[in-house]
Amino acid sequence: MRLVLFEPDIPQNAGTLFRLGACLGLPVDIIEPCGFILSDKHLRRAGMDYTDLVQITRHNSWADFEAQRTGRLILLTTRGDRSHVDFHFESDDCVMVGRESAGVPEAVHAAADARLRVPMMPDARSLNVAVTAALVIGEALRQTDGFPRL
């Protein structure tokens, strides 16, 4: 399983997602351009020393990522048509979060094998991308027995 960040805007969220990947043994893909420099101090503060423990693959564009992708693309989106808890994950899935400011373009929506959302209260718009990724990755790893062994 892989965690994919599509053109992230906020370094603190990216750092938190790098830390999530490091702690759970998940490689992280970044589709550029980013809204910040990858050496940003906020990214380092959020990721702490975990950023040195995660396998990060940078892709210059969506097309570059797609050319190298293996496994299904699972897009986490407020426009998702089903809940992450009602979805059957596979161990080679690529779980993607979109840009904090704009999500992902229609071409990415169209390429996704599944579009999932986290169930929320009716008046709530969305969760933070790092929180969403953690919830969904937790369920995906539970289903695939992919958590690191204690």
Rank of each mutant, 00 (worst) to 15 (best):
F18M: 13
N60I: 06
A114E: 10
R2C: 15
T70D: 04
L43W: 03
L141E: 05
G146R: 05
T78Y: 05
H59V: 06
Q68V: 03
A111S: 09
L24R: 03
E66A: 06
L24G: 12
Y50Q: 15
P148R: 13
P8G: 15
S83D: 15
I31H: 02
E100R: 11
L141W: 02
I37P: 08
D40N: 10
M96T: 05
C34E: 04
H59Q: 09
V28T: 05
R115Y: 00
L75S: 00
H88Q: 15
L135K: 03
I10H: 03
P119G: 12
Q55W: 00
V108I: 10
T77D: 12
P8H: 11
A140W: 04
D92V: 06
R149T: 14
E139G: 06
I10T: 08
D86N: 10
Q68E: 13
V4L: 07
S61L: 15
I56Y: 03
R142I: 05
L135N: 07
I31F: 01
A102N: 10
C23L: 07
P33C: 05
S39K: 04
G21R: 00
F147T: 05
V108F: 03
D52L: 12
A63W: 09
D81A: 11
D64T: 11
F89V: 02
F65R: 00
R19C: 02
L53D: 15
D29H: 14
R79S: 09
R125K: 14
R99F: 13
D113H: 06
I56S: 11
A107V: 09
S83Q: 10
R19H: 01
Q143P: 09
L141C: 05
D81H: 04
L26S: 07
D9G: 14
E32N: 03
R149N: 11
S91C: 15
R82D: 10
F18W: 04
V129N: 08
V129I: 15
D29K: 00
Q143N: 08
R117E: 10
